[in-house]
Amino acid sequence: MKQSRLILTVLAFGYAFLYIPLFSVVFYSFNDSKLATVWGGFSTRWYGELFRNEQILDAALLSLQVAATSATLATILGTMAGLILVRFSRFRGRTLFSGMITSPLVMPEVITGLSLLLLFVSLQQAIGWPGQRGFTTITIAHTTFAMAYVAVVVRSRLLAMDESLEEAAMDLGCGPLRVLFDITLPLIAPAMLAGWLLAFTLSLDDLVIASFVSGPGASTLPMYIFSKVKLGVTPDINALASILILIVTIGLLAAWFAMRNRRT
């Protein structure tokens, strides 16, 4: 269908708006000059410095560990929550449950972060746990908000799914656990994978909540980046951003091509 000229103009402007900042970061990551906005010739030295910077590598490792653990926990809990929302129509406290599971989606990060930190501090006073804030507390915080996203993804998949398969298995004498593991879970596996990836990305991305619930000595990658860019544009962060842009672009394009080929 032919598009009006106005729509095409807005589309072009919108995509330019979304992508010019990203291109500019990649461009300046090859800038030899230490002054990030003055062009000093082509160089890849910032990429080399990046991999010699142990603080960055430590922070990246912590971030990856937190992201993998919290994404896995969030997928388990979020899948259960999604199943509950769709398949268990009545139980005591359902309204509270559905309210609690969807609220983290829209809760401002500063509130989530502050409330969880205050919880951890109170718990520590009351029962002595968690002794130190770091990996454990960040993982719990990320799991809590990411499970909401997983639950939403799983819920929409379950709503679109044909319930008669499960009913047929049940009629043929399958126990509920067998139905769950042999029928339901394989059918919602793509949604669970999507949910896991989403949870992983959200965890890697989070700065505010981690800054609240983390303790001294434990810095995630966003926390490290933030502490550097607060002071201004730096060339090694440009290089780091470019690597991330490259990974995401390749990953998403690969997924897109794979899906397109399967369809045709």
Partner: peptide
């Protein structure tokens, strides 16, 4: 359509912090 949608989602997968940071270099 699927390509255009992909291009909308793509920035979302790149760190929020780094995308804001990218504007620092533009607006200075």
């Amino acid at each position: 359509r699927s390509l255009l949608l992909l291009l909308i989602v793509l920035p979302f997968w790149i760190s929020f912090l780094l995308r804001v940071y990218a504007w620092m270099g533009l607006l200075n």
